[in-house]
Nucleic acid binder design. Sequence first.
DNA 1: GCATAATCCCAAATGATATTAGGTTGTCAA
DNA 2: TTGACAACCTAATATCATTTGGGATTATGC
Lengths: 200, 200
Amino acid sequence: MAKNNSKENTRERIINSAKKLFAEQGYQKTTVVDISRQAGLSEAALYDHFQGKEDLLLMIPDLWVSELLKDLDDQLFGIKGAVNKLRKYLWWYMRRVEQSPLDAKIVYLYLKTNANFLNTEVYSNVKTLYLYLVEIFEEGRKTGEMKTDLNPRLARDIFVGTMDHIITRWLLKDRSYGLSDNLEAIFELMVDAFKANHSN
Amino acid sequence: MAKNNSKENTRERIINSAKKLFAEQGYQKTTVVDISRQAGLSEAALYDHFQGKEDLLLMIPDLWVSELLKDLDDQLFGIKGAVNKLRKYLWWYMRRVEQSPLDAKIVYLYLKTNANFLNTEVYSNVKTLYLYLVEIFEEGRKTGEMKTDLNPRLARDIFVGTMDHIITRWLLKDRSYGLSDNLEAIFELMVDAFKANHSN
DNA sequence: GCATAATCCCAAATGATATTAGGTTGTCAA
DNA sequence: TTGACAACCTAATATCATTTGGGATTATGC
């Protein structure tokens, strides 16, 4: 239907406008008027599509993280060995962040401060993304590729923490350098924490 | 002087009120009226002491991080070996966070989203805090206690990223468990990424 | 002492901005 | 044709952050 289509179009236009403005000026400094102007609408019309400004903020990364989740299976399919999967995970994720810096900025800088984040669909999807890591570490432990006494959740903390830290700094510094610089070096470093000690 | 003293008192009362409310309800949901009521003042009086709500937000962790910085030298003094210093750093920092959860919450959840964060005194102090880590890693590299080809800045990224991740989760989960649970285990794991391989 | 200035505080505007009310137009199905 | 509904609008209203313009109290200089 043309109607439905136009509605979807408008929704998308609003989301994209908000995404752009939130990422550029920050959540607080962006006004609802800004967003609706950018989308070519009145403020009131925006409220027919979204509950409000905060709702809009939570909506934006929802889509992105869902897509990530959908893609991940594909990306890891057919890769042999825990270390290789882990490497793929890292490069894949960093690339996706680099390709969608606006979404990433909203997730990393604005979402976590929101009191409702933990009740969000996004949060549950992020947890699932991380779950893959735990599984990879478990696989590595079982196959002996990694330490046999490796605690997969602690390993995940190190891995995710390091990724998040690098990403957050990159976002704060306005993406003035390549996100994947030094990535292989840092990967090798981290992996030494997980790998079985071959010389023993 | 009594006057100066009272002024300092009021300033402190305002800061403590704001700290409490920001940490409890979040920055956005806390109003200036809330803060001034809590401090037993009118809104207008608050503006004689601070430039505004945002200024207040940036002021709060300033004090805390300065204190941390002052304390750090003392804490590391007299500890021999890079790994031992690193362990001390981790436990010390986590304890300080546990002791000042309100400050930590503001730094970790609200400050990073602020556009002016990078121009803040806090940011520069945080960088100095991290610099100690780089120095520890350099020492470890030089003495052979750690890998001779260890890149100290990458090692710092892993270390800081992991700490931050653990702290952020703890804060988001409303500090419902001990922050230092599993700390030694995660430390041992991380250190394997940095340590020289003794068997080679 | 006394005038002057400075400090600390307030009640009441002001201004910006999120949100809502109520109405208009256009589309479509019966 | 008409009634319902979708999508949009203009014009309130509500909620704060911030300013204005003092009032009281306390130092400071003479």
